[in-house]
Amino acid sequence: MALEILYFAWVRERIGLPKERIDTNARTVAELVEELKAREERYAVAFADISALRVALDQDLSDFSASLEGVREVAFFPPMTGG
């Protein structure tokens, strides 16, 4: 399936791009992360500690064990600092 992946803040900086479209068979966010980490060093560095990261599926906060079924947009970012 095709997924739009977005990166924000230091995750974007470490990976070096704001978004990309990928084809994947990953069933969960965790599987997708493993797939990305295996790609290149910069992904492995960005995803080294997922406890320091948050994930949103189709613009709703989710978690790394969540299913990707029917999902079109996945975003990875550090804990938010609004206000």
């Binding site: 924000f8 803040a9 906060l61 550090p78 804990p79 938010m80 609004g82 206000g83």
Partner: peptide, 11 residues
């Protein structure tokens, strides 16, 4: 809530 649940990041 908007401090830690709205997707803003400060640099």
């Amino acid at each position: 809530y908007l401090k830690s649940r709205a997707p803003f990041w400060k640099k």
